[in-house]
């Protein structure tokens, strides 16, 4: 009886999904396909149209080869990775430390709520604003940091934070770190809260100390959420744009030039090589899809378990109805 009823209503499933599907086809799928077309064609220049362009059948991967050979692309990819690593390692480290402190069962840290709110705050502020603000704060020679350094006698003339690639990367990585460690901490804490308290009680009974509990119980239990944070952060990091683009207004030689800045510059300045920009996008697209697959592999167990549970519940409900 029940299954027949559901089949009757099935058409509403399609009906209610139509807006999503239409918007997806027009604004996601079509642009993705179009990007692929451009990436494999000679589509370039301000007035380029589909009619005037053609797919490079004889040398389909020409654009990709050009991008891979381009010094600027390699440099931007390297910068992007370096900045991400420079920001992620201290970010995860600090987030783990704070998580260990805030979730410690023996000594509760007072004022946690306020600390969490303050640590997370930078994350919601417009990245563009943050980048310009930090440009002012790190300004040479009379920004707040430099005037303080001079006053404290730590530096005679101040430090030009935009001078060397290392410094630019350092500042950009620091800003990213400042914006994201609170987010990572909140995610990890929620992971720890989700752990069954009985496990901790058992550890207490076995006489495990604080450090042992954290490394042998807490860490392995939040492994999934850590990997989730890692992969999403990596995907976000590969798309880094706002902060490096606005801090120091780097045009390719200062160490803060990222892949998205490269893509934007190739497409919208000079000869407007849309085909090369699209090829670079596709390279990033493939990397991100691979990363996403890793992520879904990590997350897979949980969803399957949930689906199974749901099916069981439905079966039970059906049985209960029959019995009734």
């Amino acid at each position: 009886m029940k299954s027949k009823k559901l089949v009757d209503y099935g058409k509403y499933g399609y009906l209610f999904s139509i807006p999503f599907i239409l918007a997806f086809l027009v604004f996601s799928l079509y642009p993705i396909l179009f990007t692929f077309y451009i990436g494999f064609s000679d589509f370039a220049g301000m007035t380029a149209t589909v009619k005037d362009s053609k797919i490079l059948w004889s040398e389909p991967f020409k654009n990709f080869a050009t991008v891979f050979r381009a010094n600027l692309f390699r440099k931007s990819f390297g910068n992007t990775c370096i900045i991400w690593i420079m920001n992620f390692i201290p970010q995860m480290g600090l987030a783990l430390l704070l998580t260990a402190w805030f979730t410690d069962r023996r000594s509760k840290v007072k004022g946690q709520g306020i600390f969490k709110i303050l640590f997370y705050m930078p994350n919601i502020i417009t990245a563009a604003t943050v980048a310009v603000l930090f440009t002012q704060i790190f300004a040479y020679p009379s920004g707040p940091i430099n005037t303080t350094l001079i006053k404290l006698g730590l530096s005679e003339k101040g430090v030009n934070f935009m001078l060397t690639p290392g410094r630019v990367r350092g500042v950009v990585a620091f800003i990213q770190f400042w914006q994201w460690y609170g987010y990572t901490m909140v995610m990890l804490i929620s992971g720890v809260i989700g752990i069954n308290p009985e496990i901790f009680e058992a550890a207490d009974l076995d006489g495990a100390n604080r450090v042992q509990t954290f490394f042998l119980i807490t860490l392995p239990c939040i492994r999934t959420i850590m990997l989730y944070v890692l992969v999403t952060s990596l995907i976000g990091g590969l798309n880094m744009f706002d902060i490096p683009a606005l801090y120091a207004m780097d045009r390719g030689d200062a160490g803060g030039y990222t892949v998205n800045m490269y893509i934007k510059d190739v497409a919208f300045t000079g000869k407007q090589r849309y085909n090369l920009a699209a090829a670079a996008s596709i390279i990033m697209f493939v990397i991100i899809v691979l990363l996403s697959l890793v992520l879904f592999y990590i997350m897979r167990d949980k969803d399957e378990a949930k689906l199974k549970k749901l099916k069981k519940q439905q079966l039970k409900a059906a049985k209960a109805k029959k019995a009734y």
């Binding site: 996601s28 179009f34 990007t35 996008s281 991100i288 899809v289």
Partner: peptide, 30 residues
Amino acid sequence: YEWKLRDAFFGLIVGIMMIPGTVTMIGFYQ
């Protein structure tokens, strides 16, 4: 609702979830 393509549709949603718009921006702009 239970409909034939439901699971496929959900799979698609999960599949495209992680792809940021910035990656397909060139096609979107053009």
